[in-house]
Structures are given as structure tokens and as C-alpha cells.
Write a protein that binds this DNA or RNA. Structure first.
Length: 220
DNA sequence: CACGCGATTGCCT
DNA sequence: GGCAATCGCGTGC
């Protein structure tokens, strides 16, 4: 698969839509950052939608504070927040000021795997980016990236690949969101079912988690 | 300024 | 599958 710098980032209007639609649309998309002379990242295989004040599980539910301000920023910008001494990354959705975003929960590692293996201190590809905080550690994302605009920043690429979209089309399923207490019954988590890099327990999958988007793309 | 907790992870049984 | 580690932030005294 060719380097992220040959790709064209998704336009801002892609993000300025209903958050659940963006969360679904981001599955299969490339997510990569240029760090120290090298692209690092992969293909998105798991997302969660966090809505505005209507969603009790969302960080924006109780309004804007200094720490969640980036969530109210322009669509297509990053909201990176600290939790349990780690970080998680989101892409802001809806018109600016709404306070909604898509949590990137897992990617299939593709670019800069050697670098991610060092950062995560493991050779096991399956333990590189299988969770929102794992992928932030693998991609060196932290509070310094909070508010960065991935639509225009030259060190970022988030893009759609027609071939990958065709592969995931029949595999997307929706489940409850992971690790939350409030609004826990809403089905706002989107996964590429059967992909081995999706987080959570085996019961979350309908198909056994053995597949890889790279392998499926190579077989065509 | 103390206290409690979380959109997590990894180690232990 | 259970549970402790870890720390920034929000809440309340």
C-alpha cells in the first residue's frame, strides 16, 4: 500500500455531518501522522460516536471546559484527552461549537510498524494499536496534538480508499460503546467485524477476529 | 487544596 | 476474567 503522502485528506465537509455517519464512514480510512521523518499509522477498524449535550457519556455533556474545548472546535480537528495516565484521540464532527466527536478505538497497523513496535515495546502486531490509548502511544499522540486540524496540517493524512471501502462494506456492525456507564445502551460503536485488530472481547464479534484488511486487499 | 474517578491497559489467577 | 496502577481534571470543602 502506497505512502500516506500520496493520499489526499478528506475534506472538512466529510466531518461536518451527523456524528454516527462520520463514525461509520471513517471505518477503513487511513489515519497517519508524519513523525521524525517517517509516516506512522494504519487503517481505521473501530470507532465510537460521542454526541453533544444529548449524550450523557460524552465529555461535552456538561458543557465546555478548558480541557474539552477542542471538542467544540472545527470539524476535522483533533480532540486528544488524557485518561488513566494515557491518551485517546478523536476527530471532531458536526458544525463547529456543537461538541461532538468520533473516538478512534483501533487501527490495523500499516505504516511505520517498526517504529510503533519500539514505542509499544512489543513485536506483536496485534498488541500495537488494539485500543484507543494503545494507538496513541504507537503514534506518539498526546495533549500537544489536541486541537490540530488534520484536514490542513501537512504532517497529517486521513483519507478514504475506494478499494478498502469495498472490502469493509459487508463487514460493518454496530454495538454498544466500551467502558462507559452513562448511556451505555446506545449502539454507537462501529467495527469491521472479523478484523483481528478490533479491541474488546471475543463476544463483540460475530465472525472470529482473524482477518486483516491488508490481506483481504492483496487477495483481490 | 484534598479527594475520587475515568471513552484504559496489562498482569495475575 | 478479575483487578491494580496511574494521573489529570472536576467537584466540593
Amino acid at each position: 500500500m502506497s505512502s500516506p503522502d500520496t493520499k489526499q485528506s478528506l475534506p472538512r465537509r466529510f466531518y461536518a455531518r451527523a456524528t454516527a455517519d462520520v463514525a461509520r464512514g471513517l471505518l477503513g480510512c487511513g489515519y497517519a501522522v508524519f513523525r521524525d521523518g517517517q509516516w506512522i499509522g494504519g487503517l481505521i477498524v473501530e470507532t465510537e460516536a460521542y454526541l453533544s449535550h444529548r449524550d450523557a457519556a460524552s465529555h461535552s455533556a456538561r458543557g465546555r471546559t478548558p480541557s474539552n474545548a477542542a471538542m467544540f472546535g472545527p470539524p476535522g480537528s483533533l480532540y486528544v484527552y488524557p485518561i488513566h495516565a494515557k491518551h485517546c484521540s478523536n476527530l471532531v464532527t458536526e458544525p463547529e461549537g456543537i461538541g461532538a466527536a468520533v473516538l478512534i478505538r483501533a487501527i490495523e497497523p500499516v505504516w511505520g510498524c517498526d517504529r510503533m513496535q519500539r514505542l509499544r515495546r512489543t513485536d506483536d502486531l496485534r498488541r500495537l494499536t488494539r485500543g484507543p490509548a494503545m494507538l496513541c502511544q504507537a503514534m506518539t499522540l498526546d495533549r500537544r496534538d489536541d486541537g490540530v486540524d488534520v484536514v490542513s496540517d501537512p504532517s497529517w493524512r486521513v483519507w478514504s480508499d475506494d478499494r478498502i471501502q469495498g472490502i469493509i462494506e459487508s463487514r460493518v456492525i454496530t454495538t454498544r460503546r466500551i467502558g462507559i456507564r452513562r448511556s451505555a445502551d446506545r449502539k454507537l460503536r462501529f467495527i469491521v467485524d472479523g478484523n483481528r485488530f478490533v479491541s474488546g472481547k471475543a463476544g463483540d464479534h460475530r465472525r472470529p477476529p482473524r482477518e486483516s484488511l491488508l490481506e483481504l486487499a492483496a487477495d483481490r
